[in-house]
Design a protein around this nucleic acid. Structure first.
Lengths: 221, 221
DNA sequence: CGACGGTGTCAACAGGGTGTCGAACGCCTA
DNA sequence: TAGGCGTTCGACACCCTGTTGACACCGTCG
């Protein structure tokens, strides 16, 4: 149990300090993990696989990461950070009308998760057994929901959207819908929407649920 | 342990034959499992826990079930069978208007999963690692989606619902939304809708998505 | 009656995974 | 040349799963 002097970022997990040769190993582990996760589920990737893939022994792996979970968390943090960034950008970027605006937002979130689908699916899998992963996921969803609810309130306030379900609950339902539909599209288990159509379908439901009609009234100034 | 007379079907998994004294043990294992799952996650329940809970040794457990997974599958089959039954009943039962009809259907599905939430959550957890659980879940969702799509088509055909997204894709999105929202409500992880409101919220989105308005036109004869 | 086979039971084992500990190995600095 | 420190890994302790082989119980059939 190594005492934690002061990690750079991601306080609490990860290893203690960053050192040149060590960084290569860390990257090798991360790279091996993402690569292996495209081939088999998270549960079937052992610490030994990760270590071998990075050219080190299993005990040495533990010098860099406290557990397999921490590797996934590091990978997930990066994807989540990008999704947040893209979403914020889309939210700030002006759009000619609400439909395009919402499409930008939905597509912005979908993009990083699609690109790193192995990490996304592994995270969804690990959420069951890892409180830390669950925590990250919850925080992301919480943020998306809160922001979506604020957007809905704004649309209602300016008269573009009619009143309806409480915005917070509507936003919760819509965001979880996106999460699950995207997941099935990426995973291919059970009934799924094709990858080419998924944004259109989600957008379609959002518009109807928020505006009550396929095409919202009024446009953004 | 609401006693489910569902043996005989599901050939292939489970143990070979049913015998009087052995049935008690089988029920004890099933009961222990459902009870333990209300206390801790599926992954933290070992075969040994199940065996001890049923008053037998671990090897003896394997006489009754081939694995921990099979126990969950047996539990899940019962819940799923009840959900299907209730849904079919709701679908056949006439309702004064579409809103009440859809509410009946959504509530019918939600009920058994809510009552057996430990099994529901365990199944969701195990879906990641167990192809068999995933299979059962996929089949259920597939059926719900297909039937929902048919209902939407019927509503459109009789002029009650306007055209919109392809019914199959709309049905896919709505059913997965229900699955995930119900899950978060039961699990309490991340943003969730309160248990008392969840059917109303889901129904609200379904109505808007299918009919384009809070209250659908026309009523069922 | 008594051996016989199916049902039911478990101690012991094999196998594979995780996380830890302590010895050792460079390599830089004094 | 000696230490100190970052780094590495062999060996170990532990936990869990699933299997094996011996054995006990019991109804039943020769």
């Amino acid at each position: 149990m190594p005492a934690e002097p002061t990690p750079a970022e991601t306080p609490g997990r990860g290893r203690r300090a960053a050192r040149p040769s060590g960084d290569d190993r860390e990257r090798a582990i991360l790279g091996t993990a993402e690569q292996l996760l495209t081939q088999r589920p998270y549960a079937d990737v052992s610490v030994d696989d990760l270590a071998r893939g990075a050219g080190i022994s299993r005990p040495t792996f533990y010098f860099y990461f406290p557990s397999k979970e921490a590797v996934l968390l590091a990978l997930l943090d990066a994807v989540v950070a990008e999704a947040r960034l893209r979403r914020d950008t889309a939210l700030r970027h002006p759009a000619p009308d609400p439909e395009r605006r919402w499409r930008q937002v939905i597509a912005a979130i979908q993009e990083p998760f699609r690109t790193h689908r192995a990490v996304t699916l592994a995270a969804a899998e690990a959420r069951a057994s890892s409180p830390a992963v669950r925590e990250v996921w919850s925080a992301v969803m919480e943020r998306f929901v809160t922001e979506t609810a604020a957007e809905i309130d704004a649309e209602r306030a300016r008269g573009a959207a009619p009143p309806g379900l409480p915005s917070r609950e509507l936003a919760t339902a819509l965001n979880w819908m996106n999460e699950r539909v995207l997941h099935t599209t990426f995973a291919g288990h059970g009934p799924a929407v094709g990858e080419a159509d998924v944004v259109d379908v989600l957008l379609g439901v959002w518009l109807r649920a928020i505006y009550g009609e396929p095409h919202p009234r009024g446009s953004t100034p």
